[in-house]
Design a protein around this nucleic acid. Structure first.
Lengths: 274, 274
DNA sequence: GAGTGGTCTAGACCACTGT
DNA sequence: CAGTGGTCTAGACCACTCC
């Protein structure tokens, strides 16, 4: 390692492609390249760095997997915009519970998603699909019900009106036996239901005692990456919400897939006094 | 798209590398290849699929970024073991608070990490470093203190005794003024402190009222990927814990970087009754 | 049609791991 | 030392976007 220039970056710089990714990263950090800028074509970069095109592609690939660059076929390579994350807080649960018993006029005003994101109803496009499915082993165990018990499965997609990619996909499961008491709950055309699931449960005489949420991050599966419009390298956050009523019964399970880079989750834990 | 065989997989199969990744994925799903198995060498795969080596590498790269395969230079390509996740629950906060006032003999028995992971003290290797640093704008805002206020910064790494990679790296900040009342708290050689931070705060007469945690996933930076031993494609989870005492003062901020694929977070939200 | 990235080839040589 | 993956070249041709 004697002298390797072109970008004057720190570290060893053992490889050509690292030299390229380090130099491009420096340009982004320093503001020479800013959000939305297009990079020179790969052939131009190859000439500039005196390497072959595949080597440029390797260097660009590093920054792509870090979420700093985004390639668009036929258009170019762009500096990626930092997405403004949607905040999801556990305070929403109490807020939703308080609202569940209010009159429809009040509940219509805004939903939980708008509460989280600060957007108005008009900005959001909502898609719901209802099915009746038998409980998989996994879900049966979570509900503490026999495998194969019929469940109402509701699939929701929410997106901004001016974006193609939804910012979440959610699947909610309710024991069918539970919801049959109110036939309106089986009609998907009534979505979005003002007041959300807690109001739906209220019409069945169910009060929630607590909500347990577990979540993990993992690389997206192919179809998730496409559905959420995720670039390479960004994980999905998987959140399972389990709603438990005052008789200790699991009444709803909801699985949400969120884009990892557009989601911030906030939890407040109140502690007992000494 | 008429006929393309070798693996008899679903879908279009437009590309060679997708044909390869789909076939390998099928072998993993079906159990033909199981955790820890080594794949044939890239040259052998190239011959088997009648493609060039770079094309095989591209196909393998897809599964690598999904966390299904792991390459080891000089050894081979292996089916990745599904990591057993460490569970982190917000119930730990109350548990830690209850323990903070107990005698040392009791506190010594087990720490919060062991409580989360189910491991014993002997399995864990603990590394602590103390520094005194001025508050960055970000931290100053979070503490609601002037920028540059001196903080005690404590860096922790925890790993299993039989693994190289730590399963978390954490940075904890306390206002220096606060901790100077008990000089023992400035001595890093006293780590791991039995009873954790809540006991340390207890020695200063501080009682916590609530803990706010925010949580996001993003692609790792290079050094994080190396420090945590993360394969390509796996995100890190960033967790910021803010501890607030009974006088509404922010007394500790802790930033934890967790490997996304080895971490499961569980939060329970108790709701008020109607 | 011009310009972009996407796929693919058929090699060469280097770096790391095991024996 | 043999076998593995890692880096790199110098091309070819395809697919997409935009004018």
């Amino acid at each position: 390692m004697s002298e390797t220039t072109t970008g004057a970056v720190t570290g060893d710089m053992a490889n050509q492609y690292e030299r390229i990714s380090a130099d491009l990263r420096r340009q982004i950090d320093s503001g020479e390249l800013t959000e939305g800028d297009r990079l020179p074509a790969e052939t131009a970069l190859a000439e500039h760095y005196s390497v072959s095109v595949p080597t440029v592609r390797q260097g660009v690939g590093v920054l792509q997997s870090e979420g700093l660059l985004e390639k668009q076929h036929g258009r170019g390579t762009f500096v990626r915009r930092k997405p403004t994350p949607a905040v999801r807080s556990n305070l929403r649960h109490q807020w939703e519970k308080d609202r569940a018993r209010e009159p429809e006029s009040e509940r219509l005003k805004t939903g939980a998603t708008e509460h989280d994101t600060g957007l108005t109803v008009d900005d959001l496009i909502f898609d719901a699909k209802y099915e009746q499915v038998p409980a998989s082993p996994d879900l049966a165990a979570a509900f503490k019900l026999p495998e194969g018990t019929m469940l109402l499965k509701r699939t929701y997609k929410t997106r901004h009106s001016n974006e193609r990619a939804p910012f979440n996909i959610s699947r909610s499961y309710l024991p069918l036996e539970l919801v049959e008491a109110n036939p309106d709950l089986l009609r998907e055309e009534l979505e979005p239901w003002p007041g959300g699931t807690q109001n739906q449960l209220f019409t069945l005489g169910i009060e929630l005692d607590r909500i347990v949420e577990t979540f993990r991050a993992r690389p997206p599966m192919d179809n998730e990456a496409i559905a959420l419009g995720l670039p390479v390298g960004v994980s999905v956050v998987i959140l399972r919400k389990t709603s438990i009523d005052t008789t200790d019964r699991v009444v709803e399970i909801s699985d949400v897939v969120l884009p990892g880079d557009r989601t911030e989750i906030v939890y407040t834990t109140k502690l007992d006094r000494w």
